[in-house]
């Protein structure tokens, strides 16, 4: 089913923010809406958005490819995105990341075998005073988790894995 049919209210509300000559501005919020469904943006969804906005599929795909919060491949239903940039690294973020990898038995960029969680290193998330920190990106949007420990994170991951199990 098309995005406009599935979420008529949201699509209309998104389009209402921009002037008619700036309709294309809606591409980013529409992509977030499409991604909410499955955690990634399918080719069909890109076509759909191109149709709504009277732009080409290539225009839409170029936006998907440019921004790091959009994903065009199916990976973990939740992404744990740890900031390992300079200010966080000065407060132990690299070690935190290594410990998480060891606990999960995966490397940065990989997904747990059950498909629940993808672990990623990302650039600055504007929470430098609360390192180690990460964001989760999943069906419920993006959430910050600050001043974290490995134990607290593993507990959160168990909760996320259970949630994904229930979705199946």
């Amino acid at each position: 089913m098309s995005l406009a049919k599935k979420h008529p209210k949201e699509v209309k509300q998104i389009l209402s923010k921009y002037p008619p000559e700036g309709k294309r501005s809606a591409v980013m919020p529409l992509l977030f809406l499409a991604q909410r469904e499955e955690g990634y943006i399918s080719k069909a969804a890109m076509r759909d958005i191109a149709d709504i906005l009277d732009i080409t599929e290539t225009d839409v795909a170029a936006v998907v490819g440019f921004y790091t919060l959009y994903h065009d491949k199916k990976e973990g239903r939740y992404r744990i995105q740890v900031c390992t940039d300079l200010p966080c690294a000065l407060r132990g973020a690299d070690k935190f990341m290594d410990d998480l990898c060891a606990n999960l038995g995966i490397k940065a960029g990989e997904t747990t075998p059950d498909g629940a969680v993808t672990l990623e290193a990302v650039t600055c998330l504007a929470a430098c005073d609360k390192a180690p920190m990460f964001q989760t990106q999943g069906p419920d949007g993006i959430k910050y988790h600050e001043s974290m420990t490995v134990d607290k994170t593993m507990e959160l991951i168990r909760t996320l894995k259970n949630a994904v199990g229930e979705m199946k």
Binding site: G22, R24, M28, I55, A62, V63, F66, Y67, Y70
Partner: peptide
Amino acid sequence: YTHLGAGAYICGEETALLESLEGKRG
């Protein structure tokens, strides 16, 4: 109105921000 970017440091540069707000690559 609020408008969310999608993860690109360059969009803090004002003209890249405008491109992004217009629905293009930043």
